[in-house]
Design a protein around this nucleic acid. Sequence first.
DNA 1: TCTTGACCTCAAGTTGACTTGAAGTGGCAA
DNA 2: TTGCCACTTCAAGTCAACTTGAGGTCAAGA
Lengths: 145, 145
Amino acid sequence: MNLLDIGVLSERSGVPASTLRYYEEIGLIESLGRRGLRRQFGPEALTQLALISMGKTAGFSLEEIKNAFGKRGVSTLPRQALHQRADDIDVQIRGLITLRNALRHVAECSAPSHMECPKFRRLLSLAPYSHAPTEAQPGARAKRK
Amino acid sequence: MNLLDIGVLSERSGVPASTLRYYEEIGLIESLGRRGLRRQFGPEALTQLALISMGKTAGFSLEEIKNAFGKRGVSTLPRQALHQRADDIDVQIRGLITLRNALRHVAECSAPSHMECPKFRRLLSLAPYSHAPTEAQPGARAKRK
DNA sequence: TCTTGACCTCAAGTTGACTTGAAGTGGCAA
DNA sequence: TTGCCACTTCAAGTCAACTTGAGGTCAAGA
C-alpha cells in the first residue's frame, strides 16, 4: 500500500512535520497508522492539505475548516452554512479584485499621494465593504507565517 | 472642517476604537489632531480602513499594508514589488474560486465522504497550489477575529 | 459648578497557530 | 551490534494583532 511517511508528506506538501503533528493533534487530519513510531498517511492527505491551505487563505480558522470538510472528508455543517461560507468567499473575491487593481494602480500612477488621485478613489469605491459599518469581514481573522 | 472623532470613525468603519489607536501607534493611519484629548481623523481615513481591511483579507501583515499604501497614501515599495503583490493576489483569487466551488459541491453532493467523490477531487485538482511542495502561499499568515 | 461619559495612556493579558527544545525510540545500513 | 538519524512526546516559547483594565482627563449638558 502506498502510505506516506510523515517526512514524505511534509516534503510533498511543503507543510512542516511539526505542523502535521499539530494538525493531527487538533483532529484536522488523520494518520492511518505507524511504522515503528512514524506516522503513516494515506495519499488523500495531500488533497486535504491543499484544501486546508486554501481555507486558511480564505481566512477560515482551522476549527472552521475542520467543520466544513472534516477529517475524513465528512462535513459537520448543514448545507445552508456551507452555502453561506461560499457566499462570504464571493464577497472576499470581489474585495481581492479591487485590491489587486488598487495595487496595479499604485504601481503605475505618478500622483504623490494616491488618496488624492481620483482614479484611485474610484477604484476603491468598488470595494464590497468600503462603506460597511457592519461588523467583521467574511472569515476575517489575523494571519501569520 | 469635517473631521471625524475617533468614536464616529469607529462607528462608520466598524473598527473598534482600541484598534484605531493601535493602528495609529504602529503608524498605519494618522490622526490630524485632537479635540481635547480626542483624536480627530480626516474623511480619507475611511478609505484607508477599507484598504486595510482588504489587505488583511488578502493575508498581508499590517507592516506590508503600511509599506504598500503608506500612512498618507504614499507607497514605499518599488513598482515591481507592487506588481508582484498583485500577481500573488491573482493566484489567491484562483484558489478562492476553487474553494468556493468545493464548498458548494460539499453542500449538494450526497457522497458520504467527499474525498472519494470523483467530482470533488476533480474540483480540487484545479487548485493553484494543490501540488505545491513550494513554500508559503501568497501572503499567507495566520488569522484571527 | 457638577456630573457624565466618552475618550485618554500604559501595561499586561489573550488568542490561534505554530515552533522549539530536551530527552527518548526504533528501523535500517555497515 | 552498533550507530545513525529521522522520527517521537510533552512542555514551553513565540508572534502578530489585538483587547482589557486601571486609573486619569476634559467638553458639554443640567
